[in-house]
Design a protein around this nucleic acid. Sequence first.
RNA 1: GCACCGUUAGCUCAACUGGAUAGAGCGUUGGUCUACGGAACCAAAGGCUAGGGAUUCGAAUUCCUUACGGUGCACCA
Length: 558
Amino acid sequence: MDYKKYIAGKIAAEGIAEDEIYSAIALPPNSEMGDYALPCFKFAKVMRKSPVIIAQSIAENYPADDIIERAEAVNGYVNFTVNKSALARETIDEVLERGGKYGSSDEGAGKTVCIDYSSVNIAKPFHIGHLSTTAIGSALYKIFNFLGYKAVGINHLGDYGTQFGKLICAYKHWGDREEVERGGIHAINDLYVRFNSEATEEMEHEAREYFRLIESGDKEANDLFNWFKDLTLDYVRGIYKRLNVRFDSYAGERFYTDKMQPVIDELREKGLLKESEGAQIVDLEPYGMPPCLILRSDGASLYATRDLAAAIYRKNTYDFYKCLYVVAYQQNLHFKQFFKVLELMGKEWAKDLVHVAYGMVSLEDGAMSTRKGKVVWLEDVIARCVEKAYGIISEKNPELENKADVAEKVGVGAVIFGALYNSKIKDIVFSYDKVLSFEGETSVYVQYTCARANSVIEKGGVPGEYKISRLLPQEAEVVKAISAFPQAVQDAAEKYEPSIVARYAVDLAQKFNKFYFDCKILTAEGDKRDFRLALTSAALTALKNALTLLGIGVPEKM
RNA sequence: GCACCGUUAGCUCAACUGGAUAGAGCGUUGGUCUACGGAACCAAAGGCUAGGGAUUCGAAUUCCUUACGGUGCACCA
């Protein structure tokens, strides 16, 4: 139910359009004042009356009913109070009926959203710097699916470039089959790191040659490359599984090698391609940007060339409604440039490409550096969080079955939540103290709340029917918070901001805990017991749905 | 140098996009409950929203400007 619309439709004010009233309706700073508020200041000029008078007149003429039970004028505002019993009835019934689907919708039916995220590089292990794109992208993937869109998760593999020549060269010089098989991706990465610090001029030359061999289809070079690729994919799939992340496509950069020429031809046909300093560029000077490089002076393609080809391929293949690129803000300019080039090519859908930018991760003592060995591997972070969770469980709940499962959900949840709780654009300084903190505004807090609610439900059951008497403030707050879930999901999708869902979960958990602390459920008298059980069940469902959208598991006990 | 982003409590961050008294968590101090699960709950202290100007009935939010921090600016991705 859209209360704002309902209220706007019932207000009669001379010369003010309904949609103007609708968009003016805000929320009061605290819930004692009311649930919705209409500031009347901007109507003062048109109506040639003081805001205070306007508010009074609106409040007096507002027909209260059993949906909005009160309208009150205060200092130029009209405050509206929702009938909480009716809201509780509507909200709880809907949640109990829809269960895991509560908050979902079909607003995206028939529309496809491509989401390019995580996009790992072959031969590079996951470090915490890769966590943001993976967690944000994955949450958006789930959120869009939840809203009825068809989300297509794309892992745009970094599988093209001279670094793979270097890697093969390093392997040929120093590598050992068994060692790589044993050490997996880290062994490969070590080879690459070693190349960068020890390679001679001669080896650099060899590396370029190996890259050319990969390109020209040489069997040995490609076998090695594919071996490295397989090792990488095995490794990342293990991590994705733990993080509840999935993809529909692993079409990486190499996939586009044969799809770039048509793009180049098209650019040339449309007169967009220019030669400059030996390279082929699209001039973006009129738009205040540096040129977009399409071909190097040696004729090789570049990053932008492949992204152009990929965007066109995705449009042709998926006919997307939106195509999101979950990539750090360092690449702001790159995306602005290549979006502009597509626009200049006359692709009207260029407006549907969105760079979902997020902030950088650094360590407490500065930027990460693989070469200097200053990295924090994601698997280590996960391991430590799970280990800590296991420790706490063993201490607090030693009888618990499947401790390892629960520890996994709690530990992994903390890692994901840490990446999703703040606005994505903010830079993050990684610290173990922070991810390992399981108190306060954390996923663990939310999971704990779920476990409590679950325990109550287990003992009391969910009533088939319940009666609603006058609500206490604690109850009303929980009802309101539950009813806000669908809007939170929509906002998160609209702003490409999963943190909205994460914050929602914490907010509801806080309200529920307050209710739980102040109000007895199982020992409540009369109708209250059934009502509170139903309320608890609804809150639990909303919390579960929120965490699930973030990719965080919800243990029944912990 | 130019462009973009950021700056809110000691620390980490919110603030429904211009509304009323700027809110949470952590930390500090003090409290709560026969435990429906204490990984909880409550309270106190803590703010000239980086500084200055402008617009507006009204600004953390919009505009200009300064400072500080981050990022990016032609053949890497």
